[in-house]
Design a protein around this nucleic acid. Structure first.
Lengths: 318, 318
DNA sequence: TTTCTCTTGACGAAAGTTAGACACACGTCC
DNA sequence: GGACGTGTGTCTAACTTTCGTCAAGAGAAA
């Protein structure tokens, strides 16, 4: 199902320009890597233009990260994508010698969710971490965020409401998610990439949604400034202004619970006063609909899910 | 022609640069050790470049550690890798007894704090991350936690109270600290190591203290179960009981603010009912003194700082 | 039109290689 | 005490390889 959706919705792939933006590698360099090392072999249009798939872009991103980490491009250009991920995650854990057991091949996202959920149930933080790391290795960043992390937190929330999981379970999952997503914010992006500020307004204490938004943006080649949950409107405005010269390009807000707080409604409207006119604001999360009026009033765009967020960010970049 | 697809067989391994970075030995020195003592014998590419295996890098890392520990390079260069490990672990045992309380070098740690503080002031999350990572590489885990992270959060708090820093600054620092410390919890420890549960009770929303405690324990070879802030007493008890078979060995609680909450006082006393008798509980943080009576009543031990926590953990382990 | 994109050839900075020399601490011998 | 050899880290010099970027010209897309 997930596979079918992906293949049908992106039948034509991405242009050179988009591939370059999202991977952080210049168009010229991409061609060189192709010519010299066969790093990627994109399809061509009838007139010879390169057309990149999602996977190809992921591959370029990984190659970029690998070269930044000191690997010679000639040495890594032809490695399979999974091997690249393994090398990079081993690199990240410098000083601690971890050779992650090479994960079993294409286990679908659901299995990773199940494994993580089981670990949560038994309050096994090591196993939970291992499940998330394994998913990242097997599926890549985008799929892990959208198809593992989001469903996992959803499932934990449901079970907590149903009474089959305790607060302690929810806390463990949230904590592991916080650590995992925080690590994903470290993206190798050029200093001139646009900057996304992500946070939640005062009264919204759940931060995982905002973090997922930030991690998604980071995976799309944005720089991110994540300011944690529960931030007053004037502070958001101050942060935006502090970066005005360097170019904050957008603000992402997450709303999870509650969905009908009048003070929060006010806070949203106040936010409008602290932002430059026509400043792009994206609002997401299950409670965002509850503040639709106020969000519309300040010109914020509501996004239904992370996939839509990705598309909106891509649009904005032009 | 030079650009044509290169030869099939690229030896699988790491370049000089990567080997140097991951082992901590400069490229030049690696060559010297090879030339003079035959410390490693890397493969070569067709053009004569050295190619290091994972094992070779591990070997260099061990040799580096051995020379740091005072062994002459000529004496250890040719030892098999197992002998190196044995020597070093023997050394480490001596070192923890003799040189651990030293942890000198205030000046360099201060510089990292200053750099991190500057990054916080300018809301530059990349730079802040870089400062923390740099400190970790330069000072190691324990010193980074105690001499960089703790002073940093202290300084940010002060400036916030003094009005020279905004809430947004504090949020950024807390968020970066959260990510950084969360990553430190991933320590490679044997499965039979004792387990420390770290959290804060309901009413205490500041989690950095508890995280620092958990990260400290992880650095000392403990397994950790970090459950985030704001956890009700019965949930703490449930988590402890859930691990009773596997052996939770201790509980760490952090108290930062407020220091005089009557409900929290009650919560502490309630906690006593949910814990097994004589279960080791450690309480720290600037507000812990405010709950001294209740803590004493449940037999909790107050620790003044992370250094004391380390000693107490060490004691308990026997 | 203007802006991308494609290909090709060439250039130069960065980093790799070897070989030799030097600096400094340390212990030994005169 | 001073000269000397040894062990070890660093430096210089000259050469090669690697790899990112520039330049130029033609065609495609907007």
């Amino acid at each position: 199902m997930a596979d079918a959706k992906q293949e049908e919705q992106v039948p034509e792939g991405y242009s050179m320009q988009v591939a370059a933006r999202r991977s952080g590698v210049s168009p010229h360099l991409i061609r060189m890597w192709e010519r010299r090392y066969g790093a990627v072999q994109p399809e061509r249009t009838a007139t010879g233009r390169r057309v990149y798939t999602e996977d190809a872009i992921e591959r370029l991103r990984l190659l970029h990260a690998a070269t930044q980490a000191g690997h010679s491009i000639s040495g890594v250009a032809q490695l399979p994508i999974q091997r690249l991920r393994a090398i990079l995650s081993a690199d990240a854990k410098v000083a601690t010698r971890t050779t992650l057991p090479v994960s079993e091949g294409g286990a679908p996202a659901q299995q990773w969710v199940a494994r993580a959920l089981g670990a949560t149930e038994e309050l096994q933080s090591e196993e939970l971490r291992a499940a998330l790391d394994g998913a990242l290795l097997a599926l890549g960043r985008v799929a892990t965020i959208e198809q593992v992390m989001a469903p996992l937190m959803e499932a934990v929330g449901e079970r907590w409401r149903a009474g089959t999981m305790r607060v302690a379970h929810e806390h463990l999952a949230a904590s592991a998610a916080r650590t995992f997503l925080g690590a994903l914010l470290e993206a190798l992006v050029p200093a001139d990439a646009p900057l996304l500020l992500a946070t939640t307004l005062e009264g919204q204490t759940h931060e995982i949604g905002a973090l997922m938004a930030a991690a998604t943006a980071a995976s799309e080649g944005w720089r991110t400034l994540y300011l944690g949950p529960n931030l007053p409107a004037e502070e958001v405005g101050a942060a935006v202004r502090a970066h005005a010269n360097y170019g904050v390009c957008a603000l992402a807000l997450s709303f999870v619970y509650p969905s009908d707080d009048v003070r929060l409604e006010l806070e949203v409207r106040r936010l409008g006063e602290f932002l430059p006119p026509r400043f792009p604001v994206f609002a997401g999360g299950r409670a965002a609909a509850g503040y639709a009026a106020a969000l519309d009033a300040i010109g914020a765009r509501r996004v239904a899910d992370l996939q839509e967020l990705r598309h909106v960010l891509e649009e904005l970049r032009r």
